[in-house]
């Protein structure tokens, strides 16, 4: 199985990996070590010490804090609460639900009609990063995108699971 250097994984995360290596990653069987290398690279990008267990987005992570609780955390350090809860419920939202607000992002004829569909932008209350854009109908419940089974995941990785997974 092909494995990659930490430099290659770092470049991948930065979006700077050369095409040949990227193509190799696409076409070869997956390297199980990637997760460990990836966590190291991500951990170096943040200014806090909580251990990153699983990224949910470029700036959003499930982390294990010093007292072993698992929370969802923004890259800026903002804490979105227990990792089993939908982090979006503790975010800020900006809803594009009329033509004026839609026109800020697309020409009128290239944007949805808000009688049919709205854009819901979820921001970090501390740093203003946009972590997600939902595009549902009005009334649609906030979507809980992903609830990982961390215990089974670490089992698959042959790694010890966090104490409170």
């Amino acid at each position: 199985m092909t494995t990659y250097t930490k430099k290659q994984v770092t470049d991948l995360v930065k979006g700077e990996l050369d095409w040949d290596s990227l193509h190799q990653m696409l076409s070869m069987p997956k390297d199980k070590e990637r997760y460990g290398q990836y966590m190291e690279v991500l951990q170096e990008q943040v200014s806090w010490d909580d251990r990153i267990l699983l990224p949910l987005g470029p700036h959003l992570f499930i982390v294990e804090t010093g007292d072993n609780t698992l929370v969802t955390k923004c890259g800026c350090g903002h804490n979105f609460g227990d990792y089993r809860q939908n982090w979006k419920l503790n975010a800020l939202v900006y809803v594009r639900d009329n033509e004026t607000k839609m026109s800020e992002v697309y020409p009128k004829l290239m944007a949805p009609h808000t009688d049919w569909q709205v854009y819901r932008e979820y921001y970090c209350p501390t740093c203003g990063t946009m972590h997600d854009v939902e595009a549902p109908t009005p009334w649609y419940p906030v979507i809980h995108d992903f609830q990982p089974n961390l215990k089974a995941f670490f089992d698959w990785l042959d790694m010890p699971a966090p104490a409170n997974a």
Partner: peptide, 29 residues
Amino acid sequence: ARVAAGVPVRDWMEQERVKILDHDASVQV
């Protein structure tokens, strides 16, 4: 500007809930 314009999700849910109670949406929705 995002932080200033954004509304806490739970506050927005209160407003949306009122619309649902009032059946306030287009027919297709």
